[in-house]
Design a protein around this nucleic acid. Structure first.
Length: 292
DNA sequence: ATGGTTGCATAGCAA
């Protein structure tokens, strides 16, 4: 009887008074550019970085065709995906149990698969993870002449309003994905030459800055570890004979954490070597480790 | 200025 009482007392007191040992969360975002074509590269990524959670963009597969069995075989039991035939598509692969957030916006009313949000089941309190694939925006940086650029600006503006008006008030959140904007001068191989190139125009970088300023100011996790003026890229075009020699890269893929998580940042890495993998994606994985 | 490469609706798009 007395023993049971002691046990009960411990159980009620422990969570409130003693520090919980933080859980390691190694998170990767990667534009895989067709998950079915690159299933073997996904296995390479699992071995190279041993992520706990992987956010994928451009899976390019309808949900009925999603290679669930093959992805499970890479070691990820908890899988959420939202796709469409041939274009777009996002997925979250996790070793940590997750719950999909069912009611996310239909961005720009287009019914596209560009956002997936989940709550990761972390002891203490959940971590809400958003996986985004922002529209690339086409070639002409003029919203009047190019509807794809208009769509990109509208998408970023909608996301800004969503996080500014409620969604940003939730604690312990992460935004990861291919945001298709290189915000800083040192996020591109030539700031001057890319000022009128879609992905680095002032209208885009300023819009991204307004998004990043929501929720009290999202922290750019990779730039926490690799601050400017060091160059940092996550994408190199296929249209170069030798991507490493020309090195005309851009940092399009990002991991942001809500400001309450600043103390969780442990390390960050861009897996540049993945650009040399056989049948490589034009994007490489970005990895951040947090202690949550 | 143009073209360069890749993936999928395998034919033009989108990136």
């Amino acid at each position: 009887m007395s023993r049971a009482c002691v046990t009960r007392a411990k159980l009620t007191v422990l969570p409130n008074t003693m520090a919980r040992r933080p859980k390691k969360l190694r998170l990767v975002t990667w534009n895989i550019n067709s998950i079915r074509l690159r299933l073997a590269r996904l296995a390479d990524l699992a071995v190279a970085l041993e992520p706990d959670v992987i956010c994928l963009q451009e899976t390019k597969v309808a949900d009925e065709e999603f290679p669930l069995r093959e992805v499970r075989a890479t070691g990820y039991r908890h899988i959420a995906y939202r796709g469409e035939k041939a274009y777009n598509g996002v997925a979250i692969l996790s070793k940590i149990p997750l719950a999909v957030i069912p009611s996310t916006p239909d961005w720009c009313g287009k019914g596209e698969s560009r956002h997936l949000a989940v709550d990761l089941d972390i002891p203490g309190a959940p971590v809400r993870l958003h996986n985004f694939y922002v529209p690339a925006g086409g070639d002409v940086p003029d919203p009047e002449a190019n509807p794809k650029f208009r769509h990109k600006l509208d998408f970023v503006a909608e996301a800004t309003h969503w996080f500014a008006n409620g969604a940003g008030s939730i604690p312990r959140q992460i935004i990861a994905g291919d945001l298709n904007i290189a915000p800083l001068p040192d996020d591109v191989w030539s700031h001057r030459q890319l000022l009128d190139v879609v992905s680095h125009t002032p209208v885009e970088t300023e819009a991204l800055g307004r998004w990043q300023a929501t929720a009290g100011g999202w922290i750019d996790a990779m730039r926490h570890f690799v601050p400017p003026p060091e160059k940092l890229y996550t994408w190199w075009s296929y249209r170069n004979r030798d991507w490493r020699q020309s090195d005309r890269g851009r940092r399009l893929d990002h991991i942001w954490i809500s400001p309450d998580m600043i103390g969780t940042l442990k390390s960050g890495e861009v897996l540049k070597d993945a650009r040399d993998w056989p049948l490589a994606s034009d994007h490489v994985p970005v990895c951040v480790e947090l202690l949550v």
